[in-house]
């Protein structure tokens, strides 16, 4: 009657493809887009170092339809990564206590996202001003 034979159900190997883990998987994968974008910039740095011909070829690549499409996709993925990254931010830091009360995580996400947006805008405006 009291036979003990615990049964362990196997974990599906593709758990990351199912709800509710899909959002997590998408967030982590969008990090790859950040790496690819970094690689594109790094390639520009290397061609700059290799000389004018190499840099011109790099600029030609940037203007090509393939590159424009790639950059549109990368931008979308990076924006998704930014939004979800700041949603995760409050989970990774100690509770913020102000006036004896916990600052709600949503508030931290909001402020951090706005700050990142403001920094990006400032950088964009600065770049446009330098390139004018």
């Amino acid at each position: 009657m009291s036979e003990r034979r615990p049964y362990r159900r196997p974990m599906p190997p593709n758990w990351w493809a199912h709800a509710p883990y899909r959002a997590y998987t998408a967030r982590e994968l969008s990090g790859v887009a950040v790496a690819i974008y970094g690689a594109v910039l790094f390639a520009g740095l290397i061609s700059l170092w290799r000389g004018p011909d190499s840099y011109d070829a790099y600029l030609r690549f940037l203007r090509s339809p393939v590159s424009l499409l790639l950059h549109a996709l990368l931008l979308a993925a990076v924006l998704y990564h930014v939004v979800t990254w700041f949603q995760t931010l409050p989970k990774t830091m100690p509770k913020l206590i102000l006036d004896g009360k916990q600052v709600p995580p949503q508030k931290i996400t909001q402020i951090a996202t706005l700050a990142a947006g403001a920094c990006s805008l400032a950088l964009l405006l600065f770049t446009l001003w330098v390139a004018r």
Partner: peptide, 11 residues
């Protein structure tokens, strides 16, 4: 313990 110190771990 102050209310702030309590809030740090209460949840």
């Amino acid at each position: 313990q102050t209310p702030a110190q309590l809030a740090a771990y209460e949840s």
